[in-house]
Amino acid sequence: MTYRTISRRSILAGLTTAATAGALALAGCSRSDPLGTDAGNDAGTASSRTIVIGSQDYYSSEIIAEIYAQALEDADYTVDRQFRIGQREAYAPEIEAGAIDLFPEYTGPLLQYWKPDTESRLSEDVYAELLETTPDGLRLLDQSPATDQNGYTVTQEFADEWDLTTIGDLTKVTTPLTLGANSEGEHRPYGPEGLATTYGVEVAFTPIEDDGGPLTVKALKDGDIQLAIIYTADPSIAENGLVSLEDPKGLFIASHVVPLVSDNVDDAAAAIINKISAAMNPEDLIALNARSVKEELPAATIASDWLAQQNLG
């Protein structure tokens, strides 16, 4: 149903942007056609048009989108929440078509979506290249310090035992290392091969197909594996006494929260969103995620609490 709604919107938006001049004629000659009439109205009041906010089908993305929505509502904007749309393959065409005006994105994965062969890995490079790659009609706002990306994770005890801070420190470990991750990790550039060429770390590989979930954490704690790939903003890292190793050479592509917006988001709205991005640090994002996972609070509550706490609400 969501998809159908958006498809209809994309038609509206297409009409709006394509033919501002023609809109009058369209509205005039098609009064009996609800689609044509709507398009005419939209064109007439473009500056105060509803801002459509989308989010990925991922709880953390929904929380960020909800924060945007509430902050804009506080500033008297009308917003339309189209959350939990799906994966990038599903929603990106809708954004590109102008059906969604504001979407919390992640720099690295978004760049790789538009430019699969990109060589940028570090935060600033990725953001700079993403600014160039962003299609016409869309615009990137400031990237947030908050990140949510893949990271090599070890237990706190293991990190203490070998004095590990960065992935490169793993060369100090003299016992054999086994990496546990999803099957495809074995042949990805960041997998065992990337560890060896980028950091000189040799690891064996064992597949655990739960995306760094409870089975992976259990295997880490049991010592069946020493190294796992877990999202850096995953609350299970703090909860289970794990540590994400720093990745100064950019084995994983940097993935900062970044708002992707259409022309329908004016400068005042953009300023509000930029303020949110600047205020949100990586620890905040982990805390927000933890409230969702552990306290099972709805996104709306988590978002309004955070905005109040940051004095942004």
Binding site: N182, S183, E184, E186, H187, F205, T206, P207, I208, E209, D210, L215
Partner: peptide
């Protein structure tokens, strides 16, 4: 799913 074993490796990968 949890071991490096069998034809399932092709499916998961």
């Amino acid at each position: 799913y949890t071991a490096d074993i069998g034809l399932g490796r092709y499916l998961f990968a």
